[in-house]
């Protein structure tokens, strides 16, 4: 459903991506791994419209994403989380999730200001959906708390809840397990697999935790220095000499 072809981009002379391609199919969990600075987050930023590549193509369900602005891309059914958690810090957890519902609500400013009954019904339904989502992610006790008051692990979960509230077809997760303890990480792995199985989501994720990547991914793509050096089933990737070298080479630095 997502097809990324031959992306190239550079930042002030530094080539961050040099001809990178990857595909994500329906109901597929694809992991994107690689050393720091390999260009993984840059791929996410291009897919979500935050960065514009010098060349390449990105299509999602037949639409050309490079011709679209970020909020329109989100409305096509792509939701994401950020490597450096971007929760709405001074808003409550519930409001964070309700903002995730934005594209599915219809009340404009005038109808909202007039407090029409239809708006009230829509709000009530949205709140119900949001509370159900919070309950599912174990955040229901925190609904009324400002996001900044939560520990990082919970903030990441709020960000995930906000992304899910948008009811995406494709979810992009940038280091979802970063900063989580082993218990939280295991719970997150179970959740991601269930999202695929129950909601039929496709998921593209970036993660440094190899156990995490190898146990839940259907496919792993390895990025090194802006180029894809391997793409295949987790087992094959773990044994790939090129991949091992890229990772060992990184430890030599």
């Amino acid at each position: 459903m997502l097809s990324v072809e031959n992306l190239a981009i550079s930042f002030g002379g530094l080539a961050a991506l040099r001809g990178f391609s990857v595909e994500v199919a329906e109901r597929e969990i694809v992991a994107l791994i690689g050393p720091n600075g390999a260009g993984k987050s840059t791929v996410f930023n291009i897919v979500t419209g935050l960065e514009r590549p010098a060349s390449g193509r990105v299509t999602f369900l037949g639409k050309d994403l490079l011709a679209m602005v970020p909020h329109a891309i989100a409305r096509c059914g792509i939701a994401r989380t950020f490597q450096n958690t971007e929760v709405f810090r001074q808003l409550t957890v519930l409001d964070n999730v309700l903002i995730g519902c934005h594209a599915h609500l219809s009340a404009g400013a005038l109808r909202g200001a007039l407090g029409l009954p239809a708006v009230g019904r829509e709000e009530a339904a949205a709140r119900e959906t949001a509370h159900a989502l919070l309950a599912r992610l174990g955040l229901d006790d925190h609904a009324g708390v400002e996001a900044r008051a939560l520990p990082l692990g919970l903030q990441k979960r709020v960000e995930l809840a906000r992304a899910l509230a948008a009811e995406p077809r494709l979810l992009l997760l940038d280091e979802p397990a970063g900063g989580l303890n082993p218990t939280e990480t295991r719970a997150l792995m179970g959740l991601i697999v269930r999202l695929r199985d129950e909601r039929g989501l496709a998921i593209l994720l970036v993660e440094h935790d190899m156990e995490f990547v190898m146990s839940i991914s259907d496919r792993v793509a390895v990025l090194n220095d802006g180029r894809k050096i391997a793409d295949g089933k987790p087992g094959a990737i773990a044994a790939d000499p090129g991949v091992i070298e890229a990772y060992l080479g990184r430890e030599d630095d």
């Binding site: 979500t48 419209g49 935050l50 602005v69 970020p70 909020h71 989100a74 409305r75 939701a79 994401r80 950020f82 971007e86 929760v87 709405f88 810090r89 001074q90 808003l91 409001d95 309700l98 903002i99 995730g100 934005h102 594209a103 609500l105 009340a107 404009g108 400013a109 909202g112 200001a113 007039l114 407090g115 708006v119 709000e123 906000r162 992304a163 948008a166």
Partner: peptide, 29 residues
């Protein structure tokens, strides 16, 4: 009217922009 506005979709969208423009865009705003 203002109290209604800030409690509904438009008010939240404005707050989202204040808090993080990238995250607001990623939420379809």
């Amino acid at each position: 009217a203002a109290l209604n506005l800030v409690r509904t979709r438009t008010g939240r969208a404005l707050l989202a922009i204040r808090e993080s423009e990238v995250a607001a865009q990623a939420s379809g705003i």
